[in-house]
């Protein structure tokens, strides 16, 4: 324990900014001091909440890069809580107290670390879960192959997840012999007019090869156009 305290103190010494010193000097009285900014950042569960707010404030549906740094920091904090929790429990056992019924200072210290651990876990789970939902949507919107700039925003497990999910959906669609990702809005006409957004070269459409040039307008099968529109290569042409 003493070593623990020394380390914590060192950390405070290193991380205090001049502004913090100013703020602490004048507010010495008990119960009157508010937390400084550095202390605020070290508050239990604060980084985990930061991680989640990054995701929640993302209004325009764009996927951001997986925040490995912050994610690891939260895991680090959780480890610290676990370590502290264990220390308290061992101490209570050594004093011959019954952990289930005693409610002393150590018990409440342990309780707070336990609650923080649970909270951090919830934040991490929520981060991973909500991202996995976005990854699932990618399969429906963009098909089995992701563009390179999206690829690099996923971390390793998310890439694995995408691949497995894609395979699963693919094999299900093969078994029922139906492409579920097309006709998400009920079609009025099996054919559709589209404008090409980029030089795509030779594309196999309706069993014959067609050259799609930028800004040219084509009439093609709706089912074939839908995935290309979703990928941003074509645009529905109304005019």
């Amino acid at each position: 324990m003493p070593l623990e305290a020394v380390i914590t103190n060192c950390y405070i010494l290193v991380s205090v900014s001049p502004l913090d010193v100013l703020r602490t000097d004048h507010t010495f009285g008990k119960h009157t001091r508010t937390r400084t900014q550095t202390e605020e950042e070290r508050m239990f569960g604060r980084r985990a909440a930061q991680l989640c707010s990054e995701l929640a404030q993302n209004d325009d549906d764009r996927l951001r890069r997986f925040d490995n740094d912050l994610f690891d920091q939260v895991i680090e904090e959780a480890n610290e809580h676990y370590h502290q929790l264990e220390t308290r429990m061992v101490k209570m056992q050594q004093e011959g107290l019954d952990i289930e019924t005693t409610q002393n200072r150590d018990y409440f210290g342990a309780l707070i670390h336990h609650l923080s651990l649970v909270r951090n876990k919830r934040c991490l789970m929520s981060y991973v879960y909500n991202r996995s939902q976005s990854v699932q949507r990618l399969r429906w919107q963009l098909g089995a192959v992701l563009p390179a700039d999206l690829q690099e925003k996923l971390n390793f497990s998310e890439k694995e997840f995408f691949k497995n999910y894609s395979d699963l959906l693919g094999s299900y669609m093969t078994s029922i012999d139906l492409d579920l990702t097309v006709d998400t809005t009920p079609p009025k006409d099996p054919y559709i007019q589209v404008r090409v957004m980029d030089d795509l070269g030779e594309v196999l459409l309706d069993d014959q090869s067609t050259t799609l040039l930028r800004n040219s307008i084509h009439l093609m099968k709706r089912t074939e156009a839908e995935s290309l529109i979703s990928q941003g290569l074509l645009e529905e042409f109304t005019g």
């Binding site: 308290r88 210290g109 929520s126």
Partner: peptide, 24 residues
Amino acid sequence: LLAEEEPVSVLFRVAADGVGILDP
């Protein structure tokens, strides 16, 4: 989850060890 991150003022009825960061 983020609503639960908002601060509220709390009066401790007990003492707790090892959580000094909570009380500046």
